Simulated assay, not measured.
Amino acid sequence: MNPPSKALILIVDPLPEQLVRLGALLQERYDVRLADNGADGLRLAGQLPRPDLALLDAGPAGADGAALCRQLKASPDTAAIPLLVLHAAGQEDAERASFAAGAADVIRRPLLAETLRARVAGQLELAQARRLLRHQGTLLEHLVEERTRELGQTLDAVVWAMASLAETRDYETANHIRRVQHYVAALARQLQGQRRFAGELSDANIALLYKAAPLHDIGKVAIPDAILLKPGRLSDEEFAVMKLHTVYGRDAIAGVEQHLGHSNTFLRYAREIAYSHQEKFDGSGYPQGLSGDAIPISARLMAVADVYDALISKRVYKPAFTHETALELIRQGSGEHFDPDVVDAMLTVEEEFMAIAARFAEPVH
């Protein structure tokens, strides 16, 4: 095992006899570089391995030390080197200038060897402690990021499992979930530049909308199979039961919020989408009959995404419509079923919708 290397000290002093003396006081404990002028000092400070500490003589008037401090601190390569500046007694103004220029400490002449060694050792220990603290901070950040990523992956898996359970009881498929969440994200990205939507549709919130979208029909798990899987038209009584899937979905997510004792943006979006995605812009939807901006943005996005996907998908009670037909039907519903701005956004990104539909198309049997 190799012994630990000594710390490297750069000493800059224009007087040869002082330079030699300072070197002699420190060379037993440290590796030493010597420079008898500022230019050489800057050059040696920039060489690898870089000094762990620099000891600078301020000169008779104290100005040279402050100038060299500023030059060392101005370079990214040498800015982190702790600087100790030697001053003659009675140069209080020069000492203040050195501190202002970035000196870590000053030492007054006449010099005591014990003082010099103690100050050098103290600054080196402090620098090492700072490096360790930065390293620990970086390590902690990585650990937090890794843990957050793991929790996020777990959340995504649980959400996906719950959504798949709901969808596979109906005519829907896992690909329907994937398509819808991509449609919602595409609409949100298109709308986030508009003043009406900018406050809600930040990049972070769009990511959460994408994660929450698969839960839009989670309440269907509580609908009886006789109604949920009925191929023909539902009676008024049966449709009244079917409409309750929005309430069941909201209650399930609200129960999670109640158990946690708080909510967050993801749970809010999931609850809004589950409860309000069947509302219509003109107020004729369910379960509350909300209209216009009273319908949450998340649910207005889902309404367009969900209906588009239902239109282009084959069901036991209908054929699959073409993209053009689905687009026209949604355009006709603008201002009645759908928020006109969301419809306009879909028309703008229709090629992206087509690409999503193709990417997650149903397998051919």
Rank of each mutant, 00 (worst) to 15 (best):
N2L: 07
P3R: 10
K6H: 07
K6I: 03
I9W: 11
L10I: 04
I11F: 13
V12N: 07
V12Q: 10
D13L: 08
L15W: 12
L19I: 13
E28V: 12
R29V: 00
D31T: 15
L44T: 14
Q47H: 13
P49D: 02
P60T: 12
A61N: 15
G62Y: 13
A67S: 14
C69M: 01
A74Y: 14
D77A: 15
D77V: 14
A80E: 15
P82R: 10
H87E: 04
A89N: 08
Q91C: 00
E95L: 10
G102H: 04
A113Y: 04
E114H: 13
R119D: 10
R119G: 11
A121K: 03
A129V: 10
R130Y: 08
R130D: 03
L143F: 00
V158E: 12
M162P: 05
R169W: 01
Y171I: 13
A185H: 04
A186H: 11
Q190L: 05
L191V: 09
E200G: 02
A212E: 03
A212Y: 01
A212G: 00
H216A: 11
D217I: 02
K220L: 01
A222N: 01
D225I: 01
A226F: 06
L228H: 00
G232R: 02
S235A: 04
F239V: 01
A240P: 03
H245K: 02
T246C: 15
V247R: 05
G249C: 03
R250C: 12
Q258L: 12
H259M: 13
S263R: 15
Y275D: 08
Y275N: 14
H277Y: 09
G283C: 02
G283Y: 05
D293E: 14
I297Q: 03
I297K: 02
A303V: 02
D306L: 06
K314I: 10
R315D: 00
V316E: 04
Y317G: 07
P319W: 01
F321M: 09
L327Y: 03
G335I: 01
E336I: 12
M346C: 00
T348L: 06
E350C: 12
E352K: 14
V364Y: 09
